[in-house]
Design a protein around this nucleic acid. Structure first.
Length: 359
DNA sequence: AAGGCGGGGGT
DNA sequence: ACCCCAGCCTT
């Protein structure tokens, strides 16, 4: 093992004094580590912790997760976002059960074969559970390394990222990887923060090139910026026979895949004069239509403006439409059961926003 | 190599 | 408003 560098040692020493007490640090069970890492992808500790505790409680073993219906997994994931993580989690659980004899992959290369596990997560699991010497490179590590070495080129350039990974691995090589990996991420999260880094009390002050040049707040630099598109949704919240409603599972390669929503009409714009429009031009005159406010829902790449039309439909009218095949792919459920289905945050917000009762 | 994928919180 | 958060998959 190479001689510990002062820098790597400083980070680990800092960690020993400043580490938070996080639940996934109390185990080396690869299944639980895996759960925590998938949950925490692009997610803050504050947001992800309750989900981690829920998942290890509801699905204490790999078998529990693999044998659960995907709809249940998505329901438990509801509100956390990036739902492909939950779908891949469930898929990979079954992959391990069926293709790996239920034995959790125990090295970086095999971990990478799991759907939803990339370079970061494979390094995390292999180091935390098996002490494999693979450095984790997440947003925290990119920030720490790029500042430490004064790398002011775009970190979203693969060549620059590769350099950062090499620098990080060199530091990791001099320490116990399972400790160093936790330490450098914690250091990035608490000390070398994105905004207002705490340079005044930083143990790396003397070796940090960004600090020396006073350019901490310009590093890491990203060249790309996200562009947002506007989308306009009209949802039909049918109350059929004073008790039931229609929902449908989203299946397209689009947002919220696998989640349920009301019948949807998507428009180029929300033009108020259109008012209530039945999907697919259904000719029916509901006795009453309650129009919601416009819900503005902000996603990373999309701004959605949605209006909900709550309409009352008789059983006879519903039967008529059903006979015409209008609602072939929709699910007729009791309104009171709607919260048993995984719903996008937008739908959930609408349902909880109703100051009036559901009926 | 680039684009798409949620939701919450900080500044 | 914009950025960031224990990233990854698809095209």
């Amino acid at each position: 093992m190479p001689k510990p560098t002062l820098t790597a040692k400083d980070i680990v020493t800092w960690y020993s004094k400043n580490a938070r007490d996080l639940p996934w640090r109390k185990t080396i069970d690869p299944y639980k580590i895996w759960l925590s890492e998938i949950i925490l992808q692009q997610t803050t500790v504050a947001q992800g912790t309750s989900y981690y505790l829920k998942f290890i409680s509801v699905y204490p073993t790999l078998t529990d997760l693999a044998s659960a219906p995907i709809d249940d997994v998505l329901k438990n994931w509801q509100g956390l976002g990036y739902y492909s993580r939950a779908r891949n989690l469930h898929f990979s659980a079954n992959y391990i059960i069926n293709e790996c004899n239920g034995i959790f992959p125990n090295n970086y290369i095999d971990l990478l074969k799991l759907k939803g596990v990339g370079a970061y997560t494979a390094a995390a699991i292999s180091s935390f559970s098996y002490k494999e010497n693979k450095v984790v490179v997440d947003g925290n590590v990119i920030r720490v390394i790029s500042r430490l070495y004064g790398i002011n080129e775009a970190v979203d350039n693969p060549k620059v990222l590769k350099l950062i990974k090499e620098k990080a691995q060199q530091l990791c090589d001099t320490q116990s990887p399972e400790v160093f990996n936790q330490a450098i991420m914690e250091f990035g999260a608490l000390q070398c923060k994105a905004k207002n880094p705490n340079c005044k009390s930083c143990p790396l002050q003397k070796s940090c090139i960004a600090y020396k040049k006073n350019i901490q707040d310009q590093i890491p630099f990203k060249a790309k910026r996200i562009k947002k598109t506007n989308r306009y949704f009209k949802y039909c919240f049918f109350i059929i026979d004073n008790s039931k409603t229609l929902i449908i599972k989203r299946s397209e390669k689009d947002i919220w895949q696998g989640l349920y929503e009301f019948p949807l009409l998507e428009l180029e714009a929300l033009e108020e004069e259109h008012g209530f429009v039945m999907p697919k031009n259904i000719k029916i005159r509901p006795s009453e239509v309650l129009t919601s406010k416009i819900f503005k829902h902000q996603l990373t790449h999309q701004t959605i403006r949605a209006v909900f039309y709550k309409t009352y439909i008789s059983q006879a009218d519903y039967n008529l439409m059903l006979k015409k095949g209008v609602f072939n792919n929709y699910l007729l459920i009791n309104v009171e059961n709607i919260n048993k289905y995984a719903l996008p945050r937008l739908i959930d917000l609408y349902l909880n926003d109703l100051s009036i009762t559901l009926f």
